[in-house]
């Protein structure tokens, strides 16, 4: 009988969109987190995570307006393993090797996107793409697990930009897929609150924090996100009180408190439309105004009759 081993996989999704602009602007203020500083802090966190247990492994995905890239592990891991057989042994030196690799790949990625600056201006970070990719990666890990090995993936999103309404459906699909597979999504928001990620953490049972001081990122990473899922119940972790569960309408993707919902397909609209643009169902005019006009007509005719 094979021993049942648990293997933890931490998939870190790093949103680098804002950093790029920061690293481009020449006057980087001291209190603002610089890109290099941030990557260093995340690397320290990843190292601590790897060193805390031999069953821990890590994947790093960078996401940006132009897409997402899996920067670690590298695609040709097998070749790399041959060149540096000590890389995956959990020793101290391979960690250094990994750090070098990580830095190299991240710099490559940043260089590659700097060639497409015009496209960056009007668009937002493709969070849904990064989440889809992470979930596919998690799925691959469980598929490639050896017999008797259980894979426990979790996602950590380091979020540095605002939500895009156009990604709402795709992001929700990711969240529900994660929920179904019991993959918790954690989020550490740097500058702005992210409603998508608040919902994601709430639905999948992860932790959401918006850190008050971005420069202190590492402190929060080590304090909140380093312990494994099992230890969380015995920790006093920050509670997020307000989760924005408002819907965004399909017509112009505004957040709405009350809206009209198609009874056939459940699409949400902020104003009345006679034909559902999603499923082509025909609706009757809202019943309330109709009734009122009828009553008015009757009462007026009655009053006429009285006269």
């Amino acid at each position: 009988m094979a021993t049942v081993a648990e293997k933890n996989v931490l998939i870190a999704v790093i949103d680098v969109s804002q950093f790029y602009e920061l690293s481009m602007s020449s006057e980087v203020q001291s209190q603002v987190l610089s890109f290099q500083h941030c990557i260093d802090q995340i690397t320290v966190f990843i190292n601590s995570y790897l060193l805390s247990s031999h069953c821990n492994s890590v994947a790093v995905i960078l996401c940006h307006q132009l897409g997402s890239t899996l920067v670690y592990p590298v695609p040709n891991q097998a070749e790399l393993d041959e060149a540096h057989p000590e890389l995956n042994k959990g020793k101290y030196e391979p960690i250094g090797l990994m750090n070098g690799l990580l830095r190299e790949r991240i710099n490559q990625f940043m260089l590659s996107i700097s060639e497409n600056i015009p496209a960056l201006v009007s668009s937002s970070t493709l969070l849904s793409g990064a989440l889809s990719m992470s979930l596919c990666y998690a799925q691959r890990c469980s598929r490639e697990a050896t017999a008797g090995e259980t894979i426990k993936p979790r996602l950590l999103v380091i979020r540095a930009s605002t939500d895009a309404a156009s990604q709402h459906i795709a992001t929700m699909n990711c969240i529900f897929a994660a929920q179904k597979q019991n993959i918790p999504i954690d989020c550490c928001a740097l500058w702005e609150d992210s409603s998508f990620m608040q919902q994601a953490t709430d639905i999948t049972g992860g932790i959401y924090i918006k850190i008050p001081e971005p420069a202190g990122l590492l402190q929060f990473l080590l304090w909140v996100f380093l312990p494994d899922i099992k230890s969380r119940s015995s920790l006093q972790l920050p509670q997020s009180s307000v989760v924005d569960y408002r819907a965004s309408c399909f017509c112009d993707q505004k957040l709405v408190d009350t809206g009209f919902v198609c009874s056939v397909c459940l699409a949400i609209f902020c104003k009345f439309t006679p034909i559902c643009p999603v499923c082509q169902a025909h609706f009757k005019l809202p019943s309330l105004p109709q009734l009122k006009s009828k009553k008015k007509g009757k009462s007026s005719s009655k009053s006429k009759a009285k006269q």
Binding site: S123, S132, M133, Q139, R140, S166, N173, C174, A177
Partner: peptide, 24 residues
């Protein structure tokens, strides 16, 4: 094939499409 099944059965997204710039 594994990703194909996963995308259609559970995820309901295409990672490729989600990672390409939308023309909206």
């Amino acid at each position: 094939i594994d990703c194909d099944l996963y995308c259609h059965e559970t995820l309901h997204n295409c990672p490729g499409c989600e990672n390409s710039l939308r023309t909206q």
